[in-house]
């Protein structure tokens, strides 16, 4: 374990890895909020989540190309993607809301391929890097570096989480969304237009993804194929955190980011995703064991 020894020789590296991981994790959290919302309310697993992230990235890129600081891409992407999400619901998603879970996976998988290929045709497969140009902070004599954009992303993820909580608790639409999530039929009986609630939910999801996409593009890069890892991570985060708990999503996402980064350092970047999946399996199995034990007490 040469890499492990490296960590012991220079413990400061651990700080770097953890910092990077925590800050990336916050970006993962954003896409995961959206997935949780759609899953909880519409009972749909949206496989096209990553593609919405990708579209948000292109919004930042085109602003950057027009000479505007791509940071404005965060609200602009959110607004534009809300419209995209709304349209997607009105054209495709409403047809699969009450259907089997597998049909929704199939339909959104088809959507993801369609969006990806359209993006390739429209934006070309080139790799793009819109940069906000905020520079880097160096600490410990340059041994640890953090880019400002990552810190901004982290703050944006926390803010979005806060806004989401307020939206769900404090607004009429938010209350309607929660009511629909609890019991769609009862909500309908109470006079809630659930169709409209679904459209809003999908729109809000797309808006959050768009904002995270703009942050991803500014932190790393964007091309038509960056979506899939974000879909996978959102899925994993929601599985671990459970539906309906926003702070758990944030905590899981940050933990995942840190675990990924440290595993990539120790075992090589090649095994990063494999490690994450291994972790998922371990968590699911151990949770089953715990649950089974609890059930035994109840019986």
């Amino acid at each position: 374990m040469e890499n492990l020894r490296l960590l012991f020789d220079a413990p400061i590296l651990t700080v770097q890895l953890l910092l990077d991981g925590i800050l990336i994790g916050a970006i993962f959290a954003l896409a995961a909020y959206g997935m949780m919302l759609v899953w909880g309310v519409l009972n749909i697993i949206n496989v096209a989540q990553g593609e919405l992230v990708m579209l948000g990235g292109y919004v930042a890129f085109f602003l950057f190309k027009a000479g505007i600081n791509p940071l404005f891409g965060v609200p602009v992407a959110a607004a534009l993607l809300f419209v995209v999400g709304w349209l997607l619901y009105r054209v495709v998603i409403f047809r699969i809301v009450d259907k089997d879970l597998f049909i929704s996976i199939l339909a959104t998988f088809g959507l993801s391929i369609l969006i990806q290929q359209l993006a390739k045709v429209a934006f070309s497969p080139d790799v793009r890097t819109p940069q906000a140009g905020f520079g880097t902070i160096s600490m410990f004599g340059g041994a640890v570096t953090v880019t400002w954009i990552k810190i901004i992303s982290f703050a944006a993820a926390l803010t979005t989480g806060g806004v989401l909580v307020w939206f769900l608790r404090g607004t009429r639409m938010g209350q309607a969304i929660r009511a629909t999530a609890q019991n769609a039929r009862a909500a309908r009986v109470m006079g809630i237009d659930t169709d409209r609630v679904y459209a809003w939910t999908f729109g809000v999801n797309a808006a959050i993804c768009g904002a995270s996409g703009a942050l991803v593009a500014m932190t790393y890069l964007v091309d038509p194929y960056i979506g899939l890892p974000y879909t996978i991570r959102s899925f994993m985060i929601v599985i671990v955190a459970g539906l309906g708990n926003i702070s758990a999503v944030l905590a899981t996402a940050i933990g995942l980011g840190a675990a990924e980064n440290i595993s990539a350092f120790l075992f090589g970047a090649e095994y990063q995703i494999a490690f994450v999946y291994g972790l998922l399996v371990v968590i699911l199995i151990s949770r089953r064991i715990v649950l089974a034990r609890q059930r035994r007490y109840l019986a």
Binding site: D20, Y220, I226, I262, A264, F265, G268, A269, E270
Partner: peptide, 12 residues
């Protein structure tokens, strides 16, 4: 190191 094809971060 080997990089995965879906690489979008080389920080590690």
């Amino acid at each position: 190191d080997k990089l995965p094809p879906e690489i979008n971060d080389m920080a590690a």
